[in-house]
Write a protein that binds this DNA or RNA. Structure first.
Lengths: 202, 202
DNA sequence: CCGGTATGAATGAACGACCGTTCATATTTA
DNA sequence: TAAATATGAACGGTCGTTCATTCATACCGG
């Protein structure tokens, strides 16, 4: 019989159930705050069976991050759509709305990135941030340069806009603070866009 | 004889030494990743003595956050200085530089806030974020309204600017990613300021 | 000044529970 | 039947917390 692809994404349903359970628990209580027994029980699986699918607890965590990373950078995600929606800066509001959708959809991923920063000193995710500018530069190259002022770096500007929206929604969603800017989400998207387009100065 | 401070850092009391050790360890390995025995040893104190000063491990964590919060909001901190430096938006660069200083000075505090979000679901720090806008509104009221465009909310704008700088330096310092915008810190401060003042549009 | 003592800081052994991982074994699958 | 998958008891540690005990100091009436 064909040997199972060892490194590939889990195909056995129990392996996926273990990943899902680890996902929920690591997000709720962190890595060291979650025991393998809890993961097994939440997955409806015996304790020892975890070790048939994953080498150990930390490898389970790493596999979880990899699964999210693959999904995050898969084509068709809202951020990629927004970057191509129109050349920056015409797509600022689209970036804002896509950021909101993305933070909601990938709330667990973002939380796990924080888990990595806190409990593993960012060991698993530092590369992601180091390569951020290159990724944004590719998006800018693809969508073309829009009506950006000549003394503004369009890549840095697009990163700045995106990260601002991202961090706004992260506080709203992950820190559980509603309307921390004193306004609703759509209102905040427009307020940010107004400032990013024409600045705050009179 | 009373415990002589054999370590280099002068300590007022053993309670402070326990707090300092907990600070270092919680930041490095998270709350559940740190044991009370490690804290005791790092503090140069017996295990049981921790419980003479703190009710338990979580209360130790909470006390740590409270100590930082008191220091963070004490008068004379760089952020408060920058807010009064000149009416917004004339002080944008000052806010940027103060943010850099603050993230460096309070790196541990910010990390502990992430620890709280990850391991306690933000239980200890959510209030801080809920009250953010009120604090910024007070700063704006105190420094007066500068040359802000009439359709821009100066409080939201100042929050936006400050959080952008804060998050920039957080990635640089806490995530350990150097120059993730592809430029140095002072350059980034100026690039942000350029955009916040007059926008990205041509 | 005295001896007595109340008080809190300090200690580390001990406790029961839980930790991640392994393993002998059983069951399912192809 | 061979391999993959599943089980849960068992192992050696470590966990947070408690506790009996010691020690240093402050306060007392005399």
């Amino acid at each position: 019989m064909p040997a199972a692809p060892a490194k590939a994404a889990p195909r056995a349903t129990n392996a996926a159930a273990i990943l899902d359970a680890a996902n929920r628990l690591f997000c709720k209580k962190g890595f060291h705050g979650t025991s393998t027994r809890e993961v097994a029980e939440a997955a409806g699986v015996s304790l020892g069976n975890i070790y048939n699918h994953f080498k150990g607890k930390e490898e389970l965590f790493a596999a979880l991050l990899e699964r999210f990373e693959a999904e995050y950078f898969a084509p068709g995600q809202p951020m990629a759509q927004a970057f191509l929606d129109a050349p920056f800066p015409a797509n600022i509001e689209a970036i804002g709305r896509a950021s909101g959708q993305t933070v909601n959809k990938f709330a667990d991923y973002i939380l796990l990135i924080y888990v990595d920063v806190v409990e593993f000193q960012g060991r698993h995710i530092a590369k992601l941030f180091r390569e951020m500018r290159v990724r944004y530069a590719k998006h800018v190259a693809k969508a073309g340069r829009g009506a950006v002022a000549p003394d503004v770096d369009p890549v840095a500007a697009m990163m700045m806009v995106t990260l601002s929206y991202f961090n706004y929604f992260t506080v709203e969603k992950l820190f559980g603070v509603k309307n921390h800017f004193g306004m609703g989400d759509e209102e905040a998207i427009k307020a940010f866009a107004r400032i990013f387009r024409r600045g705050v100065e009179r």
